[in-house]
Design a protein around this nucleic acid. Sequence first.
DNA 1: CTGTATCCATAGAGATACTG
DNA 2: CAGTATCTCTATGGATACAG
Lengths: 143, 143
Amino acid sequence: MEEGTSNSPSYCCRTEDDYGVLQWDTREDCEVRQILDRIADKWSLLVIALLDRHTMRFTQLRREIDGISQRMLTTTLRQLERDGLVRRTVHPVVPPRVDYALTPLGGSLHKTIQALVDWTEEHQSEIAAARTRYDHEAREKIN
Amino acid sequence: MEEGTSNSPSYCCRTEDDYGVLQWDTREDCEVRQILDRIADKWSLLVIALLDRHTMRFTQLRREIDGISQRMLTTTLRQLERDGLVRRTVHPVVPPRVDYALTPLGGSLHKTIQALVDWTEEHQSEIAAARTRYDHEAREKIN
DNA sequence: CTGTATCCATAGAGATACTG
DNA sequence: CAGTATCTCTATGGATACAG
């Protein structure tokens, strides 16, 4: 996790590119890059998308997210909790009951994530068509 | 790339969850899931974010995206091209010149991606604070 | 310049078993 | 139920060399 290259947390500063357009920083040690890498994660994205509105229990999330392993769900939830996006509530009962919910910060992120999901749903057929076209043309070039 | 498990392209259909809330499909073979996995990719996201407005050449992208290898840039661009998000233009000159630009479809995706980047920039300090808090509390529990 | 083609290391992720 | 703790394995991705 620690690269050891830079000591200070490098804040992202927008700079001008060759075209004079205000461009966001893409340096690897840039904090925004690191956060994006975390958010733009297969499982994180699904968890945040699912946690909209209602709280959910561990097993419930596990059931809903087809294909996730117990380990990855635990890891993902811990990261999201650490980033302040998800709140974990342990109820001292037997058997244990743990609830997960979005924090206000997580809720605000949910909006943009949902927009991404919506975009995907809206354009899935276009993408599927593009893929078919591409694969078809690729075959033709071989023959 | 080919899973071989299902033959027909399974379209995502929204279903109702336990709460009666309209929930999007999270099945692993769901097409939306697959597209999201592709888009919510470290490098894809950066490429789309950078290709806003102006076209860019291969080396130019390579320079801007700190840390990307030649192989990953090629792979990422091919996937984006296949998905119809990026247009690749080869100029028949020596030395070769190849331009990359967003398609209209890619342009529409860029908007939501940019929203994600903007969100990250706006809230990076909150996330950083949350991490510090979390790590601090974790240390206390050990002692 | 813009790529392929290989080889190889490693982090991500699955499977399994065990615990409070 | 909601996790840890291991072990293992594979896919991802870096490094390098070569080519049109």
